[in-house]
Design a protein around this nucleic acid. Structure first.
Lengths: 214, 214
DNA sequence: CTGTCAACCTACTCAGTAGTATGCAAAGGA
DNA sequence: TCCTTTGCATACTACTGAGTAGGTTGACAG
């Protein structure tokens, strides 16, 4: 809050500042990714930090606020990574869609805790504790829609060019993103048996083929 | 327990018996589907029943047991519905896969609370409360693997016949089931805007096309 | 060297809820 | 008819965990 004002006061102990929030965000993302929202106590997040509750509550108003911050960060990261690909010139829709799906899949696997949290978060809308933050929730939904729209645009361009079969673009994108978003649920990062590249490639091919039609 | 013994005693008040468990199971499925495991109290389940805790604890040992029972029921229903299609003679792998995906998608949408619960349940493995029931959890994982195997078998048959492109059948099935299992997360049953049949058809086509390759 | 403020930590409070103890009622069987 | 057993409800207990209150430390400004 105060640090975002113009001509910061610069009084007293400077300390971590915005980095303090970031550290908590990362710890919370790891903890939430492991146990889920409810099974993760504030104390557990503090432990993950090597600190106590006091530190957490110094930067955040409450548990729900931390959680939503993790979720928003996760989606923002996705958009920031995928949007440039969608806008790439000199590549057809199919090729771009492959790259987008490939990257999304990779991000889901590479120990990206925020992504795992974002995924489990979607069914939280009904939980009162979360629903209170209607403004942030609206942001989350808007970001998610925007992300879907990126894919929809590419699909519709592909349909116009005849590269993809004509169907309800909203629905096929939900199919594709469903397949991708499901990855964190079954993918276990520890056992290196499954190659990230191979999974991403298989998924991306599957999706592009699904769009092309027979 | 006692009712499963041979030559049941048949003493005292007969009452609902196994139906009592069923009623609780349904109420719990609805409640869990709405709020999730942790946000659903035993009292909430009892309310859904129009009863109190006492009734619930008369039939179940605890919350986790109810939850896992809902999950097992959900998967069993899926297997019971889809397995017959996979074994159908006189239809090619592509056609059967379409029907399987179509049915799975439909079951995800038709207010099937148990399915929604099963979906949210997968990330529960790490929660101590649930992990205690190692035996039931093992059953759940086995059932889930068995269900996946049904799809894998059809895919591999399709590959052998040249109907499907050759890839890692385990991974493409995970893609397909991911897309399908994701449905409960975005599909809102109340607003009738989205036609169940249309969604199921779009998803099933998408999946079959994805398997066929280009 | 002193006041100030961020950056914490410790030690509480208090609400919600899983699970229990107990009692009562209804429905057969003998 | 009474006894037994199931099928509940009511009224607890015990605990966990979110959020708070207040204290302490250390860096920087003046």
């Amino acid at each position: 809050m105060s640090s975002s004002e113009i001509g910061r006061p610069a009084l007293g102990r400077p300390g971590p500042g915005e980095d303090g929030r970031k550290a908590i965000l990362d710890a919370a993302a790891r903890a939430f990714a492991r146990k889920g929202y409810f099974a993760t106590s504030i104390d557990a997040i503090a432990d993950e930090l090597g600190a106590t509750k006091g530190r957490v509550y110094h930067y955040y108003r409450g548990k729900a606020e931390i959680f939503l911050d993790v979720v928003v960060t996760g989606i923002r990261d996705l958009i920031a990574a995928v949007e440039p690909i969608s806008a790439r010139t000199g590549a057809g829709p199919a090729e771009r869609m492959y790259e987008m799906a490939h990257l999304h899949a990779s991000m889901m696997m590479l120990r990206n805790h925020a992504q795992r949290v974002s995924v489990q978060a979607i069914e939280m809308r009904s939980v009162a504790e979360i629903a209170i933050h209607a403004d942030v929730l609206a942001d989350v939904l808007a970001l998610r829609r925007r992300y879907e729209q990126i894919f929809i645009d590419v699909v519709e361009e592909g349909v116009r060019l005849g590269d993809f079969a004509a169907t309800d673009s909203g629905l096929v994108v939900k199919s594709a993103l469903g397949a991708l978003n499901w990855i964190p649920i079954w993918y276990a990062p520890d056992r290196g048996s499954l190659d990230v590249e191979k999974v991403a490639d298989t998924f991306a091919r599957f999706i592009v083929n699904g769009l092309k039609g027979s």
